[in-house]
Design a protein around this nucleic acid. Structure first.
Lengths: 328, 328
DNA sequence: CTGTTAGCGCATTCAA
DNA sequence: TTGAATGCGCTAACAG
């Protein structure tokens, strides 16, 4: 693989010892003659020599590699997360090994184990399971871990999230202002993710307190959803649908479109958006924009701090952005 | 970092030599007593020993790491590409180090150089530049390279793409069937990407041959685009807009929506889609779906073949999927 | 069936 | 201002 020029060859060619080359590589010029330095420089260029990172790491224990585990890379949320993380890490010469959980706990676990065989210095994890115990094996490796988007219980690692509760509450109030009588909350399986539970509980508490009906549909985005959803919005009450994440929101919009159900005349629609395309969909969907790129940036920064043993924060909460449009 | 248990400690603890441990690790049980084997197994578990990949690689030259360079990870096309690549690579225990070019040639080059310092075994590249010479430094490292989505000239590496020409031609014919008189082709800067040129030339040839007008807008998706686009579709002819990629398509839809221009009554719209959301946008956008996940899978397979020195193919062309809806 | 020895490519004492 | 020697953790002849 790669170039097979080694430090020894450079040394021989330049007529100095490996030690001197090593010093040159590490910028230790203090005690080096201009002559030697230039000769080495020339030789390296000439041989197109690149130091072998494996060997370097073996000594230094540094690999400049961070493992990043996302729940599902085909979800825009995860992609933007990666963009944010990468932009920060690369400034410090770190790079990412990326694992796609593919929304499967089994896949996540398997790939995570493979990941641990790599010489990574830390892990940024968007976990698929809400239980810390699922990730106990991470504790054994003494790696810094940063959680993004979702937290696990009990608390064990620093986490970067959005102000889910406040944002949800703001929309809940808006729903009440608009005199909706019933809200159908739709989510992918709710027990799997704490964030979803948080959002749901916030909605439920506030809506119930204000005498509104609330109904939960917790299912995969598939045919079952269609039937359940249509049933749920059947009643005479003025009804709004609230999607707990971007994928669900898109699924719902598709169903309503297929059934030619008008928004907001027949039913109101809102929820969390990852794709940033809700303004394109008629009549413009009022929603909470998850700023996942920013979350990624914060997570990257937190990781860098952990690596440098600065006493890093244990929680960062970023503000969501709410877009008021015409679907509610 | 990680666990600091080494093979020596395990050896001492188990009362055997490092060699024996090494044999155990590599599954060479043929000539090993049951007793020894079990003792080693127990000791490893007890010490929670994990072999150090750095040291292994230093000998074996295998890192199980592939560098993947995407043009812009915030583009759905790139995300799905990654999903496809990852799904194939992980089956063979390979993992990806991911670089986001961020649509900046400068950024791509810088990060690519950092990437080469990592112990990767190959590179899958969605290049930002159409010129092979920009990537000459890759040739020096004797790494297998696979190009995805876009090719560079002159041809130097195997490439996985879509049947751009055939798909574009099919839509061109459809446009003619529908009696459009003028087509406005919109793209991000066209000189930068061969694929864009290919698509445009195909359109132009076929439309001109059939006596249609064709106009090219080659610009970033920003305010300039809005003005140019509105000018272009001003005329009395029956006009269609053709977007050369997904980002542009979304940009156009947004502009038309802002200006309350009806599709397809006032203007027809079609193009390449990456987001797979065009069915959601009223009235349903007729488009060419880029199956980037499949392209990614093919690229992953090709890379694996190259690594095993199987004489791999030098070009794979996958079929696009055309969705006829109501925007044309 | 198992151990001794050497070496992968580099960084770092220690000595000159 | 420079080098020789040693070791990081592991694998693979070669030898018993």
């Amino acid at each position: 693989m790669k170039n097979n020029v080694t430090i020894s060859q450079v040394a021989k060619e330049a007529g100095v010892s490996k030690t001197t080359i090593s010093r040159y590589l590490n910028g230790k010029f203090e005690n080096m003659s201009q002559d030697t330095r230039q000769r080495i420089e020339k030789t390296i260029a000439q041989l197109d020599y690149h130091p072998n990172r494996q060997a370097q790491s073996l000594k230094s224990k540094k690999s400049y590699l961070i493992g990043v585990v996302v729940s599902d890379i085909s979800n825009m949320y995860s992609s933007l997360l990666l963009k944010g993380i990468g932009s920060i890490l690369s400034k410090s010469n770190y790079q990412m090994i990326i694992i796609d959980g593919g929304n499967s706990l089994k896949q996540e676990q398997e790939l995570l184990e493979k990941l641990l065989e790599q010489p990574i210095e830390g892990i940024i994890l968007q976990p698929l399971s809400p239980e810390t115990s699922h990730y106990d094996f991470l504790t054994q490796h003494k790696l810094p871990v940063v959680l993004v988007d979702r937290e696990t219980a009990p608390t064990h690692w620093p986490v970067v999230t959005m102000n889910n509760i406040a944002a949800t509450l703001e929309i809940a109030k808006y729903i009440i202002e608009k005199d909706y009588e019933k809200v159908v909350v739709v989510t992918e399986p709710i027990k799997d993710v704490l964030t979803r539970q948080l959002r749901y509980r916030t909605l439920r508490e506030h809506l119930k307190m204000n005498g509104k009906k609330i109904q939960l549909i917790s299912t995969a985005v598939d045919d079952t959803l269609k039937k359940e959803l249509l049933d749920a919005i059947q009643g005479p009450e003025k009804t709004a649908i609230f999607a707990l994440n971007g994928r669900v929101l898109l699924g719902i919009l598709k169903i309503l479109q297929e059934e030619k159900i008008n928004i907001p005349e027949q039913v109101g629609v809102t929820g969390f958006d990852d794709w940033n395309i809700t303004e394109l969909i008629s009549p413009g969907i009022t929603c909470i924009e998850q700023q996942s790129e920013k979350i990624g940036e914060a997570a990257g920064t937190l990781m860098l701090q952990s690596l440098e043993k600065e006493n890093a924060e244990d929680e960062i909460i970023l503000p969501a952005k709410i877009h008021y449009r015409h679907s509610l």
